[in-house]
Design a protein around this nucleic acid. Structure first.
Lengths: 259, 259
DNA sequence: TCAAGCGTTTGACTTAGGTCAAAATATTAC
DNA sequence: GTAATATTTTGACCTAAGTCAAACGCTTGA
């Protein structure tokens, strides 16, 4: 698709610190899912001016840890992350999975510290958006402030849907909803609606869904027996999305059906 | 404290629509808990300029319903509210309780519609903050933008703590955590740490905690037997906050203890 | 004051999902 | 490529919490 993006080297040295590379949102295929939505060319360039491309993280590396001071908000450019909250006795709960195009770190704005930790589930890289500069720029660029507020609101909605999932759904409803959520997010990325490659372990999934790992494993087996999915370890193919919707307790004809 | 606030009547009629009354944040005893934190006198007056005091709601009245277009964000001035999310088959989950000084409605910014409903648990009144005007004002007043982002971030943190509660805590831990949360919020309001007057029904509490109403009732009875609380219907007295912390699975010596 | 109605508590029983243990697969490292 | 290690699956059993049903006790209103 056209000519490759050319980035001018900022020094004569051959090796450029990746973490200081400017990002070109305007040529990023995720721009319609990420923070720049609705920004015009000039505003987008301003946003690019404050964003840095951070080094890639390998599987298991931490993007931030509980208690770290808020420095940046992060956009996933490639790969995926989990965020984990811990209780004082050591029990943990996975509060979210973040795929390409999704933003994380907003929970740190409240107290200027990250209240949870974020870990790469696979080789990933992120765009780093220094928060103080983001705040300043949002003050000047109305479209950016607007988008920032919308993205944070979306995070609130997402969390509230998870509250319903954990508070009122059965195990099978939880897993079916979760698989359908991954499917939808892959579609947004232009990927298959049916072929998932789960980057997280069964244990992570169990922590996320509020279930024991054995329960999650049994549910995968049952869904397989019932012809809902194919499972080959972490490769999952959704064979009957309509019936998965039924299992999830959601009418497949669409969300927000009026009472 | 000083002279009473004088509001100039805007018409010669004796009856002034309460919903169009200006609000005086600067003389409101909730200002340090609410949106105006950190604003100087001039900025606070600008904020007051866009806020309206809405009519009081009686117990059971709806502040907004699922699907309503986003018009305003609301600050609870007196009383309390619950927000409820529904599944398509009719199952409901209470996603939050909002007490005086707390803000609700941010989940509507994402899609310009309220994805859940808010109902008054008792005679309550709210300050109504028209969202379009709030957004515009936040664009001009840096302190306000900053506070708005912080408040939304706090909502995200709150929801994530609830995810841990629902995902990993036992019934008794959930109820103990919940009672302690009410206690803390009462203290912030300058009220008793021990004498709670729960405005919500056991059923609401059960929906909030992801439990059956019978389980909640049994937990109240058990906490009573164990000398943790006194229960007289909705009047609950916390008799041993330290032990309640233990039951909640949280070290009473303080939150965020480093690992 | 009393009756009606709702919200709450208690009891008896059931069950979804948890726990413990072991076997079967993947993945990783050399 | 193979050994070592970690993850996942399966089975047997247990328990916390749910369900159903009935009794109790507040409010509310005439």
């Amino acid at each position: 698709m056209g000519s490759p993006t050319l980035v001018a080297s900022q020094s004569s040295h051959a090796v450029v610190k990746i973490s200081s590379l400017k990002v070109a949102c305007k040529s990023c295929n995720l721009r319609e899912l990420c923070l720049p939505i609705g920004l015009d060319q000039a505003d987008m360039e301003q946003l690019e001016g404050i964003i840095r491309r951070r080094r890639a993280l390998k599987k298991g590396q931490m993007l931030y840890r509980t208690g770290d001071p808020l420095r940046s908000i992060y956009a996933v450019r490639r790969g995926s992350f989990k965020t984990t909250g811990a209780m004082e006795d050591g029990r943990v709960h996975v509060t979210g999975f973040f795929l390409a195009g999704e933003l994380l770190g907003f929970d740190a704005i409240n107290a200027d510290r990250h209240p949870c930790e974020a870990e790469a589930l696979e080789t990933s890289d992120v765009c780093e958006i220094p928060y103080d500069r983001l705040e300043n720029l949002a003050q000047e660029v109305p479209g950016l402030q607007r988008q920032l507020l919308k993205v944070m609101s979306r995070e609130i909605v997402r969390d509230q849907q998870l509250l319903v999932l954990l508070g009122r759904m059965s195990g099978e409803e939880r897993l079916a909803s979760c698989l359908l959520s991954f499917s939808r997010r892959q579609v947004r990325l232009g990927l298959s609606a049916t072929d998932l490659n789960l980057a997280m372990s069964r244990q992570d999934l169990a922590y996320y869904l509020g279930l024991a790992i054995e329960t999650v494993s049994r549910l995968f087996s049952r869904f397989h027996e019932e012809g809902l999915i194919d499972v080959q370890a972490r490769a999952v193919r959704l064979l009957d999305i309509g019936r998965l919707h039924t299992v999830a307790g959601v009418d497949a004809t669409g969300p927000n059906r009026p009472k």
